[in-house]
Nucleic acid binder design. Structure first.
Length: 279
DNA sequence: CATATGTCCTGAGAGC
DNA sequence: TGCTCTCAGGACATAT
C-alpha cells in the first residue's frame, strides 16, 4: 500500500472531499470539512508507515495518518461510482499548466472500522511512539522478539498480534509464520525454546517479505487489492490460512485445523506443529 | 502490569 | 425469495 501511494509523491492536492454516504462515518480528525480544507494545496513529500498505519507527509510538518484496519484500502483512480469512499484527494503536478494530468487518491472502507487523521509530526511521534507500537516485524531480531514475549503466558499467536510487542503482524501472517516455524499457535510464549524463537523470527520475516513481494493476500471476499487495483498473489501461497480440512502442503499428511485464539480464527497443521515446548 | 471480553461497522455466504 | 446466522487482513475500552 505504501509503495503504491509513494508513486504520488511530488503531487499537490487540488481538491479534497469526504463524500456524503448513507453509512456510519468513520473516525475523522479533525472533522471532515476542516480536514479537507487543511489538505487542499498541500504537496505530498513522502509516504511512510508505522506498523499497519500509512503516513502521508506534507509540508509544514503535517501528516495524514490512514489506518485501514480490516477493510480499508487505497485506490488510485478508482472506477466511477465506487461505493464506501471515505476520502478523495485529487492530485496534480505542481505546474502552472491547467492541463497537467490529474490523479485521484481514494480511501475506501466498507466496514468503516478504519480512520483518517491529520496530525502534526510532533503529535504523530507521541501517538505512535515505541511505548505503543513495538519494533517492526521486518526488522526485529530473534533476541528482541524473545525478550519482549518470553515472559508472557499467552499463546504465541496472540503475542504476535500484539502491536505493542511487535508491529505489523496480522491474523493471516501470524498463522502462516507459525506454520513455517513449525510452532503450535497455542503454545504459551514462556514455553518456546531458544531454537523456536530463532526459527520464528526468521520465518516471520520470510513470510512477510514473500507476501509483500506477491503484493499481499486477496481473500475470497476480494476486499483487498493494491492501490493500482491489482489483486494480491500471496493467497495462493498460504499453507494454512483458510485451508482447514485440506491436507498440509508441507508434510502432506496433516489435515489443517481451525481453532479460535483471542477471538480470531487460527489455522495450523497438527502434524507439523505439535503442541509441545521446544526443549 | 498482563490477560479476557465486548464493541465498533457493513456485507457476503451458508443454511433453512 | 427471504430470513437468520456466522464470519471477516483490527484495535481499543473496559473489567478483572
Amino acid at each position: 500500500m505504501r509503495r503504491g501511494v509513494a508513486r504520488l509523491v511530488g503531487l499537490r492536492v487540488v481538491r479534497a472531499e469526504v463524500p456524503p454516504l448513507n453509512l456510519q462515518p468513520i473516525k475523522y480528525q479533525p472533522e471532515p470539512a476542516e480536514l479537507c480544507r487543511r489538505l487542499v494545496g498541500r504537496h505530498l513529500q513522502r509516504v511512510s508507515r508505522i506498523g499497519k498505519r500509512l503516513l502521508l507527509h506534507w509540508e509544514a510538518g503535517e501528516v495524514l495518518v490512514i489506518e485501514p484496519r480490516m477493510t480499508g484500502r487505497i485506490i488510485i483512480d478508482p472506477p466511477e461510482g465506487l461505493s464506501h469512499v471515505r476520502l478523495v484527494l485529487d492530485m496534480k503536478s505542481p505546474t502552472e499548466r491547467e492541463e497537467a494530468p490529474q490523479q485521484s487518491l481514494v480511501f475506501r472502507d466498507v466496514r468503516g472500522l478504519g480512520s483518517v487523521r491529520l496530525l502534526s509530526e510532533e503529535l504523530c511521534r507521541r501517538e505512535f511512539g515505541p511505548h505503543k507500537i513495538g519494533p517492526d516485524a521486518l526488522d526485529i531480531s530473534w533476541e528482541e522478539l524473545r525478550d519482549r514475549l518470553s515472559r508472557r503466558r499467552c499463546a504465541i499467536k496472540v503475542g504476535l498480534l500484539d502491536q505493542s510487542v511487535l508491529a505489523g503482524v496480522g491474523n493471516i501472517y501470524a498463522s502462516e509464520a507459525l506454520h513455517r516455524a513449525r510452532i503450535h499457535p497455542a503454545l504459551p510464549c514462556e514455553r518456546l525454546s531458544r531454537v523456536q524463537w530463532e526459527r520464528l523470527a526468521k520465518c516471520l520475516r520470510e513470510v512477510l517479505e514473500e507476501a509483500i513481494r506477491f503484493q499481499g493476500s486477496t481473500l475470497s471476499d476480494g476486499a483487498y487489492a493494491t492501490p493500482e487495483n491489482d489483486q494480491g498473489g500471496y493467497q495462493d501461497k498460504h499453507c494454512v490460512y483458510q485451508r482447514d480440512g485440506q491436507r498440509c502442503p508441507h508434510c502432506r499428511r496433516g489435515i489443517i485445523r481451525r481453532i479460535i485464539l483471542a477471538q480470531r480464527s487460527t489455522y495450523f497443521c497438527p502434524v507439523c506443529q505439535p503442541l509441545r515446548s521446544g526443549r
